[in-house]
Computed example of a mutant assay.
Amino acid sequence: MLTINFRDFPLSAGDRVLDLGCGEGRHAINVYLQERVLSIGVDLNLRDLRTAQARAQPFLQADRPHQLIFKQADATGLPFADGSFDKIICSEVLEHIADYHAVLREVARVLKPGGLLAITVPRAWPEKICWWLSDEYHQVEGGHIRIFNGHHLRDEIKQQGFHYYRRHWAHALHSPFWWLKCLFWKTQDTNPLIKTYHRMLVWDLMEKPWLTQTLEKILNPIMGKSLVMYFTKGTTTALRKNTQGEDSP
């Protein structure tokens, strides 16, 4: 299940792409499959990284098996040189990290001038309902520790030297699913309503039927669970070059 839209975040052959806080590898693997790029996923959770490596195995291409790398690292202190990456994805990460400003500074440091950044966080109002329905949802270890105001976060990212160019929302059909999980938190693993809804989401992911795909597109601006924002490091000229498939300056 992708949150980033690659039409808004175009990749070019030869790019070095960082999936920061990659979890079980959903974006890092898809980046690897999009173009002939070097895709590097980093996360602090070693168990998630092992899962990502296992999930990646069937997708590795014989002529470039070493262009998808998973590495353990702290997002507040990345083990990469300045300007190491052409593109960075940071999806559903900042809400988990106490010093998220340190993460933004590291992103600005390791991204090349003219590079593209995609950041996603939970949208405020669906997230507030989850917090209202269940204390456990946001008190669990490794859970969400803040609710972002999208405009405020956008301004904070711009203060790091980024130019904002696009936003959209994603995963509207997942908002009710999480509300149900929060409402029935203690019995969510056995609740028949939650199980049925989950089967529908899996069916939607695998089969991509017209009905649910269209419904989600209609509902995303209203109740999309994730806010997705895109930036370029530097000027609007750099953005035009990137989106036209030219080399970054």
Rank of each mutant, 00 (worst) to 15 (best):
I4E: 11
I4G: 04
I4Y: 11
I4H: 05
N5L: 05
R7M: 00
L11R: 05
D15W: 04
G23Q: 02
R26H: 09
R26P: 00
N30W: 01
V31D: 08
V31P: 05
Y32G: 13
Y32Q: 09
V37W: 08
L38D: 12
S39M: 02
S39P: 02
I40S: 03
L49G: 10
R50D: 15
T51N: 12
A52Q: 08
F59D: 09
A62W: 11
D63T: 12
P65V: 10
F70H: 09
F70R: 09
A73P: 06
F80V: 01
F85D: 04
F85R: 04
K87D: 03
K87V: 10
H96L: 02
I97S: 05
A98T: 14
A98E: 15
D99P: 07
V103I: 12
V107F: 07
V107I: 15
A108N: 08
R109H: 08
K112W: 01
I119F: 02
W125D: 13
P126N: 08
E127L: 11
K128T: 02
C130N: 14
S134Q: 08
H138D: 04
E141L: 11
H144R: 01
H144Y: 04
H144A: 00
R146W: 00
I147Q: 13
I147H: 09
N149C: 11
E156Y: 11
I157A: 08
Q159M: 08
F162A: 04
Y165I: 06
Y165D: 10
W169M: 10
A172P: 00
A172Y: 00
L173A: 09
P176H: 02
F177S: 04
W178A: 04
W179K: 04
K181H: 05
K186V: 00
P192S: 07
L193F: 13
Y197I: 01
M206R: 12
W210Q: 08
T214H: 04
N220M: 03
N220F: 10
N220D: 15
S226N: 13
L227V: 00
Y230W: 09
G234P: 10
T235C: 00
T237W: 01
L239N: 02
S248Q: 09
